[in-house]
Nucleic acid binder design. Structure first.
Lengths: 329, 329
DNA sequence: TCGAACTTTCGAAGCGCTTCAACACTGAGA
DNA sequence: TCTCAGTGTTGAAGCGCTTCGAAAGTTCGA
């Protein structure tokens, strides 16, 4: 193993000079700097992370607690993780993936000085991890927007605004009876923050626009077909659909189109999903992209800012945007 | 921060005794051990990871290079990662997620002593990372089975055996003309290892069974419908389908069923995909589960074994198994 | 010409842990 | 009684790095 001492010897300087060249924390003459850098390169030196973290009391690692269970929105989770990892590297941080999604894992990582900060995904409203985090003394950011006391900074997509946007779009397309085909029943009944916020925005926008809107839970798999069939049978006047259920989207879109054809009208679908998912589903009137990778990146930026400036920002919601219709039925 | 010295003082023993209690590397009397453990608990001590890695020259961290681009098989990737993380924790290891999927990232992690070992997913046949790994001096395991010189241990699913198994099943169901609806064209033409191996097993089994089998590339999205339509039109005698394309599976299954109904026969589909995906697609005759989580766990076990015993195992292929029909058309 | 004020570099003291050599005991065998 | 092996515990030497205080060298105005 090549150590900083080897570099120092080769460059003919002291150990501390090498350290200062690497960190830039003190002025070093250009000449010396060049010599040291050449030595570093030629020896292929990279500093021992453990030694560094011991001496500097910081690890340059961020702990990420991601929901690894294969669930509804694997795409979204993957994209958020990608955004986090990529952006973290840009700031010079690495990502330690925490094994379980409980408080224990957070404590282990923080108290063992394995990480400088923590990023927690998939937070529920009264999540016990929130208290854990605020008691931990490590900077941390949530991806999601729990309700209640806001003791930890959050980053999320503005689901409420997305609800408004979708309704406005469907109304502009001429629809007066609108349905939100939403998350699976278990997500709805847990009152998961994002599902609630989406429904709130959706219903408020319907009222503001003077149209009738209803919210329907919908399972993710092929059973979604039956759900949508049911909704359309019971409410034949619904012609505008806002679908937020990635897993069910292809089935739902196909079913709506088919039933529409049968009854001779042209229902419109606005979907809320990652952009590449929208692109692979035919027949959408429009879609709102869930900027999953951007959420991950934004959360990482926020935590890096806290880390470097000590600032303590509160909540950041990324605004929704229509992507425009991609395909025609 | 609580250090080992605090614990030692509180327990009335020396620092080294505390260390030996934690590591178990020397005999300590039960009485002393109890006293130390009580002190550890009451102070909430957890050792500084950096200090530990500096002194012991090992980090208890495994680097994982996962393909983070949202691609074909997000489910599979997620499940493998889950398997890795979960199993690693059981062995006392944490997972560092590497940012990019190039050799640089591997070198950075290894040479900076950030990890004890490396796990690399999504390896292609002549992947430059294989040489990097063998030159690195860190234990490493590939998830996948590249062709050519085998210098790094591998873990993968036995796609070739899966090809045989699917054909045997379709033949047993009475089909004589069989098609493999496979990966997207770009994956096929890259001669990705798993696609090749699956096709090889499939074709060999067809020949052994005396039936005709053909292999068809198939895009992942809704375009798959056109592909399958085409295949069925050109080869109306095909009644047995083996589908290995997670993204396209719902579309493909629906299309096959529909065309079958139109022409009045009953085509059978055997799918190759994670079990939960299979469960959500109606009308499969049978399916072969890709044991993604088990693959991740097996790879982790292998790397931990290398780490602890210095053994150097070569290749481990997990056998396929039919899961039985879940749903009827 | 001398010292003040910089600039550049260095020596050494840790950071918190592991581990080796060695020490203090205890019994058992001679 | 003395030695020897075994058991339990300790002190101290690092592991490779950062960082503080200070030394050495340089410039400049009085």
């Amino acid at each position: 193993m090549v150590t900083i001492a080897d570099v120092a010897q080769k460059a003919g300087v002291s150990i501390s000079t090498v350290s200062y060249v690497m960190s830039g924390k003190r002025a070093i003459s250009q000449e010396t700097r060049d010599r040291v850098e050449k030595a570093i390169d030629s020896l292929g030196f990279s500093p021992h992370a453990g030694a560094r973290s011991l001496a500097s009391r910081s690890t340059n690692v961020i702990g990420l607690q991601a929901p690894l269970r294969t669930g509804v929105d694997v795409h979204v989770v993957m994209q958020i993780v990608t955004g986090v990892v990529t952006q973290a590297r840009k700031h010079g941080y690495d990502i330690l993936l925490l094994a379980s999604d409980d408080s224990k894992a957070l404590q282990r990582a923080a108290k063992g000085s394995m990480v400088d900060a923590l990023l927690v995904m998939d937070v529920e409203s009264d999540d016990p991890r929130i208290d854990t985090l605020s008691g931990l003394g490590h900077p941390s950011v949530l991806i999601g927007l729990p309700e209640g006391r806001r003791t930890v900074p959050c980053v999320d997509f503005d689901f409420e605004a997305a609800g408004w946007l979708a309704v406005d779009r469907l109304v502009a397309l001429g629809h007066h009876r609108i349905a939100l085909i939403g998350s699976p029943p278990e997500v709805m009944s847990r009152h998961t923050s994002y599902a609630d916020r989406l429904a709130r925005g959706f219903l408020a926008a319907c009222e503001a626009n003077g149209v009738t809107g209803t919210v329907h839970a919908c399972p993710s798999s092929a059973e979604s077909v039956a759900t949508v069939d049911g909704v359309m049978t019971e409410n034949p006047d619904i012609t505008g659909f806002f679908v937020h259920n990635e897993g069910a989207l292809p089935h739902v879109a196909a079913t709506i189109a088919q039933r529409g054809r049968q009854r001779g009208d042209e229902p419109a679908i606005v979907a809320l999903c990652p952009d590449d998912v929208a692109r692979s589903v035919p027949g959408l009137a429009d879609s709102i992209a869930v900027p999953a990778e951007a959420i991950g990146a934004a959360a990482t930026d926020m935590i890096c800012e806290i880390l470097s400036s000590g600032a303590n920002p509160a909540v950041r919601l990324l605004p929704p945007a229509l992507t425009g219709a991609r395909t025609t039925p």
